[in-house]
Computed example of a mutant assay.
Amino acid sequence: MGVVVNLEDGKRDRGSIEGLIELTRSDMTRVNELILSKAGSDVELIPQLARHLISSGGKRLRPMVTLAAAQMFGYSGEGHVKLATSVEFMHTATLLHDDVVDESDLRRGKQTARMIWGNQASVLVGDFLLGQAFRMMVEVGSLDALEVLSDAAAVIAEGEVMQLGVAKNLETTEDEYLAVIKAKTAALFSAAAEVGPIIAKASRSDRSALRSYGTNLGLAFQLVDDALDYGGSTRDLGKNVGDDFREGKVTLPVILAYRRGSEEERRFWKDAIEGEQADAAALDKAIRLMHRHGAIVDTVGRARHFGEIARDALAPLKATPQKAALVDVIDFCISRVV
């Protein structure tokens, strides 16, 4: 049973991505057309599986960030559409791979691809989408953009392996966990934001600003997801509430509750996470312990901290509608838990 977190202290107005959606609407139409085109194949299973995930209702925040970041610096070509599509394909591929590794049954309220077509097909179609992403990057012809996105692909893979190393390990520290999500989630947000100014031939300082924005937005986004797994709803989270707990994932709310708990409470966590005794009653108890020790509230507090760093990264840049929309995205990501 999830408990919605109500955090009034220091709460900003609820953010919105409506400005971002409006600014990128025409470009996103082209991105969506390119997604469908590049997901096509004579191998029948590939478009079936790819379209299952692509059409499952994600907001496509990452490619919109790429488009807005390019617009922000006056870009007027076509390359940003291919780079945004590459970013979305990289994200989609990681979702396919994640669901296999995590043995997830639900993604955005629908059965995961692995539940319909199996693990092998999911992994291989994820690899196909990565290949298509790199083809488009090469077509754009920007070595700097190719370098940033290929580096991100390697870092994301490292993050996946790092996550395996901390799985079910309750001795994981907060710093170790932040390193995992910086690689696994924030790296793609960072690359998505940075390739915009790259293709617009903006300055090094502009690139650095968008890179920092993306990194810290990604950290905030993932920490909010962590909190939602114990204090949200299936609609907000896009998967079953408590999935992280049932899968034995050691996320920040677990780390904080475990470290702050009594010896008896730590035994509970060991039984639930390491001993795989994570039934519905255990989930209810886990949520109560997290509230007792402020673990969810403090996880959201960490998210707000990274959100402020993202906001400060954009602060020196010239005021534009795109900048305002990217700032609104920060509040939108964090407002999902309030």
Rank of each mutant, 00 (worst) to 15 (best):
A84T: 08
F189V: 08
R14K: 15
A186V: 11
D102A: 03
S104N: 07
R266V: 07
L217D: 10
R25A: 13
V180A: 03
E44V: 04
P47F: 07
P63G: 01
G118Y: 11
Y213S: 03
N169R: 15
V180G: 01
G126M: 09
G58K: 12
T185W: 10
T94H: 04
V327S: 02
D312L: 09
F221Q: 13
A157V: 10
L252W: 06
L283Q: 05
G109T: 11
E139L: 06
L20P: 01
D236R: 13
L49N: 04
L61F: 14
G261A: 02
A183M: 05
V329M: 13
E176S: 03
A186S: 14
R30H: 12
V81L: 11
L36K: 14
Q322A: 06
G214Y: 10
D13S: 01
V101I: 15
G15F: 07
E18C: 00
V138Y: 08
A191R: 07
K182R: 15
E274V: 11
M1P: 00
V148N: 01
A84N: 07
A200W: 14
V148D: 02
R60C: 01
A193E: 13
H291E: 15
A278F: 05
R135M: 11
E147T: 09
L67T: 08
K201P: 00
A154G: 02
G261Y: 06
A193K: 13
N32R: 11
N169V: 09
G74M: 14
L143T: 08
M90G: 00
D271A: 08
R114T: 10
R107E: 11
D127K: 02
R14I: 11
G57E: 13
G261F: 06
R51P: 00
I198Q: 07
L188S: 05
D99K: 05
F73W: 14
G15K: 08
L170I: 06
D298E: 15
L217Y: 12
G294E: 15
S205K: 14
T173N: 05
A227C: 02
N32T: 03
V100G: 01
S122I: 11
V327A: 05
Q132A: 03
M28K: 08
M1V: 10
L326R: 09
G307K: 09
S142C: 01
T112R: 09
T24N: 02
A272W: 07
